[in-house]
Design a protein around this nucleic acid. Structure first.
Lengths: 245, 245
DNA sequence: CCCTTTTATCGTCATACTGAGGATAAATGA
DNA sequence: TCATTTATCCTCAGTATGACGATAAAAGGG
C-alpha cells in the first residue's frame, strides 16, 4: 500500500524508499536539574496543546533526520535555556521509553537525557505557554505530568542521586568558584538529607582531584569566610561519598 | 512536498495517517553474557546478508508495532536461546544508539539490552548462519563486528563490571546451587582480575542477603567439599564489593 | 570595643571494612 | 601414609567513616 501525505523536506531522499519496518517517531526528552533558592528545581514546559494540554512536561522534541541523539538533546537544551554551550554542563543519556500507548497520537520512542546545570542557567524567556521554566522538584513530583514524564523524572532523580555518590558531578551544579558548603548543599538537596559539615569537609579535601583551591576566599556573608574552589580534574570518586539508604 | 512509495502492511492503520515527523526504524539489540569453559562469553549471530555480511553481530530485531521495548528484548532473547522464561535471568536496558549512519540502509535507533545468563543457557540450534552461538568475549572484542555492535558490546561489558560491584547480579551467572568459589570465578572472569579467595569468602558471607546456604555440600572434585548456596533476597550490596581500577 | 552568633576548619576517637597472609579442615590421588 | 588441592577460619595493620569537641574568623548588637 502506498501512503500519501507524508510531509518532509524534499532534500531527504531516505523517505522516498520503500520501508519494510514499522515507523516510529523518535524524540528526546530532557531532565534538567538545577539548584535555585535552596531547593532542587527541574526544567519544565507547560503543554499548550492536546494531549495533556495544560500539564507540565519535560522539554524535548523530535530528533531530526540526520541528527545524532546526543546532538538532538544538546540542541533542545540550548533552545530552552541560555546555557552557554557545553561549559559547566553535564549531559548524559538516561534511558529510553517506548511503551506503545505512551503518546496517544502515534508510536513514539523517547530517549531521555539527564543534565545538571549551574544556578546561573536561566530558561529562555518567552511569552507563549510553552516556554521553559524552573519548577521546584518536590512539588513537581506530586503533580500529574504529561505522557510518562513523571516516570522519567523519577528515574532521572534516582540516577542523579546515585551519580553524586561516585562521581564529581555535584560540582556541575555549582557556579564557579564555589565553597565546600555550596558543594555540601548540593548533596543535601539532591539526597534530601543533612550531612555533617565537618565530615563532609574532610571527605571532599581527601578526595584527590575533586576540587582545587583558587586561593581566594568569600568576602561577604555571616560567619568565617570560606575558601573558594574550582572543580578538579577527577571525574570518579574512590571511595565514593557514602549515602544512607 | 508529498512523498509516495511508503510501503507498509495495509493492516496497520497508524501508518495511513499523515506524519509530521521523520520515521525511524527501532530495533533492540542484546548483549547476553554467560560463563562457559572458564571464560566470559557473549551471544552472537553471524550475519548472512549485506551489509556487514559474514561479520558477527549482536542478536536483535525490529520492535513490533504494538510491542513494548522490554517485551521486544525478552522476545528476542527467548527466540535466540533456550532460557526458560525469566527464571534465573537478568535483563536490563543498556543504552540507545542512534547515530544517523549506523545502519547504511535506513535511519535506525537501536535500544540495547544487557542480560546475564547462567551457564546452562544454550543458544537455539539452527542450521542457518544466523543462528546464535556463544563467542568468547576476549576474542570477540578484537574482531570487527557489524554496525556499531562492538561499541555496544564494550558498553555492556563496562556496565556488567560496574553492576557486579554494587549488586548481587553475579549470582545470575551461576546455575543453582553454587559455591562461593563459583561466585568468585564470576567476578574474576568479568573483571579480568584475581581475587583473594579468603577475603572474598569473608565479604560474601558478611553481605547480608547475598547468598543463603542450602545445607548441602559439593561431593566430587579436588579439595575440601564446599558449602552450596542459593541467591539471597538482597539485590544491592552495601558496602559494595571493591574492585581495583 | 566587647560579646554573642554564625559559619569554616581542624582534631580526636571508636568502629567498620579491606588487603595481606598465616593456619587449619577435609577431600583426592599417588 | 602423604603430598596436593581447595575451603574455611583467623589475625593484624592500614584506611575510611560517623559522632562530635574545639578553635578560627567573620558580622552585628549593645
Amino acid at each position: 500500500m502506498t501512503i500519501k501525505g507524508f510531509i518532509v523536506k524534499s532534500t531527504i531522499v531516505t523517505y522516498t524508499r520503500p520501508m519494510a519496518f514499522p515507523p516510529f517517531a523518535v524524540t528526546v526528552d530532557l531532565v534538567v536539574f538545577t539548584i535555585r533558592d535552596d531547593a532542587l528545581h527541574v526544567l519544565t514546559i507547560r503543554r499548550g496543546e492536546s494531549p495533556f494540554k495544560g500539564r507540565k512536561a519535560l522539554p524535548g522534541g523530535f530528533v531530526k533526520v540526520n541528527e545524532d541523539l546526543d546532538t538532538a538533546a544538546a540542541r533542545e537544551l540550548l533552545e530552552e535555556t541560555n546555557i552557554g554551550s557545553v561549559d559547566r554542563l553535564h549531559l548524559e543519556q538516561l534511558g529510553t521509553y517506548g511503551t506503545p500507548k505512551r503518546d496517544p497520537r502515534m508510536r513514539t520512542v523517547s530517549v531521555a537525557y539527564l543534565a545538571f546545570a549551574a544556578d546561573l542557567a536561566t530558561p529562555v524567556a518567552g511569552t507563549d505557554a510553552a516556554s521553559a521554566q524552573w519548577s521546584p522538584l518536590s512539588a513537581t513530583l506530586s503533580t500529574k505530568m504529561a505522557f510518562d514524564h513523571l516516570t522519567i523524572l523519577q528515574d532521572g532523580l534516582e540516577r542523579a542521586r546515585a551519580k553524586l555518590e561516585y562521581t564529581t558531578l555535584a560540582a556541575s551544579f555549582c557556579s564557579n568558584p564555589f565553597t565546600i558548603a555550596d558543594l555540601r548543599h548540593v548533596y543535601e538537596l539532591v539526597w534530601d538529607t543533612t550531612i555533617d559539615p565537618r565530615n563532609f569537609h574532610r571527605k571532599v579535601l581527601a578526595s584527590e582531584g575533586f576540587v582545587e583551591p583558587t586561593g581566594e576566599h568569600t568576602s561577604a556573608g555571616r560567619g568565617r569566610p570560606a575558601q573558594l574552589f574550582r572543580p578538579g580534574p577527577a571525574t570518579q570518586l574512590h571511595p565514593p561519598v557514602r549515602r544512607q539508604h
